[in-house]
Design a protein around this nucleic acid. Structure first.
Lengths: 213, 213
DNA sequence: CTCCAAAATAAAGTCAATTCACATTTCAGG
DNA sequence: CCTGAAATGTGAATTGACTTTATTTTGGAG
């Protein structure tokens, strides 16, 4: 099954990815040529295209690696103890943000998102959005846990709430990477506020009931 | 003031934009070359770059035109009568979606978003995000109106709620354009559900209070 | 050990966006 | 009317992603 050939193939794939990761990190996406990646990985430029269908695919593959890790971290977080729901939800979403910025810069994220959009139906483009879907699902799991606690209303669709919350982090994150100057602290502050707002809701009903009580 | 030079310049700009609009609509973004746009506008290819700094900028300029229109429509909507808050908010956000799809296809939106990300600091890139900001602000205005009605809690920050709601439409819209097969009806259904959820909130408080009442 | 098919390779080529050195045009001041 | 900057137009040259091809390497089956 795992003949020498397959191992070599996997090894070469790793080499190319490692070279890309290194050069993207050092010089940015735009200033890294596929030729340079090939040279660093000690393969021909054509070989790079045997493994990845475009320069953008290479970047999305790097993003995908982080995707698996972040889901694992999220899973562990969910399994822990949780106090109030807004803090718990913010905690999970903050993990996503923080993990995203360990290996990738804003410029790389901008390009990764742009590639995911323009190549939305390539394997890695699909993978990108699939990762988003899985993360939204994971947020939904935390919502369900909090519902079981009695910390959150039980009559709402946990998956849908997860989806909404994930869209919010994602949107805030996108604004964050789009503006080179925006500091991470501001992103976190916004996220915390938006989560709190979402948990509380906008409806006047609560207020009326408070008055009645 | 308006010498020949300025008039010609404005005219040429319009010609280039009109040519781009026509070709993008007919052949899509990827299959339209700058050379073809220049030819249709009857200018040299270099001239196109005197007016727009990239092919993507050209597309973002078209998006910006629609941006002004949609804000005007939104303004009129807000000035009208509103029944329940979820319907009102959904109504406004649905205008954004529907208007967005009048002139631009999914493929064009994908490329517009991708360009806005990669050229986030070019004039049109800034304009793109500025438009988003203005729309979020407009949603905030509707929230404020509904607060004045007593339809929504008055102790929340209207601007922040507007921002959250806009991020949600935007996120749903992005998922919509990323998946060529997803029908508009599904986008609307999701939006309606998410808005309802957001208005209601997740907090268990309401339920507890209901029980007490 | 031999041969085959898969995979790698280098080189040359395609293609389209973007740039640039030069040509043309406008217009202010004489 | 001229005239010469300054602004603008132009298309050929550049660039880099991606493809194609002809050739070579090599793991592994027989």
């Amino acid at each position: 099954m795992t003949g020498l050939r397959e191992r070599q193939k996997a090894g070469r794939r790793r080499d190319i990815l490692a070279a890309a990761s290194q050069l993207f990190a050092r010089n940015g996406f735009a200033d890294t040529s596929v030729e340079a990646i090939a040279a660093l990985a000690e393969v021909g430029t054509g070989t790079v295209y045997n493994y990845f269908s475009s320069k953008g695919d290479l970047l999305m593959a790097l993003v995908a690696l982080d995707g698996e890790q972040v889901r694992a971290r999220g899973k562990r977080f969910i399994a822990g103890r949780h106090a109030d729901p807004a803090t718990a939800l913010y905690g999970l979403l903050a993990i996503y943000i923080d993990h995203s910025l360990v290996h990738l810069t804003k410029e790389l994220w901008r390009n990764a998102m742009a590639t995911a959009l323009t190549q939305a139906d390539s394997p890695f483009g699909i993978g990108y959005f699939e990762n988003d879907r899985l993360l939204a699902e994971q947020v939904g799991e935390l919502v369900a846990v909090l519902q079981a606690d009695g910390s959150l209303k039980s009559d709402i669709d946990a998956a849908q709430a997860g989806s909404a919350l994930f869209i919010i982090v994602n949107g805030l994150f996108m604004q964050f990477v789009a503006q080179e100057k925006m500091p991470k602290t501001q992103l976190h502050a916004r996220l915390r506020a938006q989560v709190a707002l979402f948990v509380a809701g906008l409806s006047a009903e609560t207020v009326l009931q408070r008055k009645r009580a």
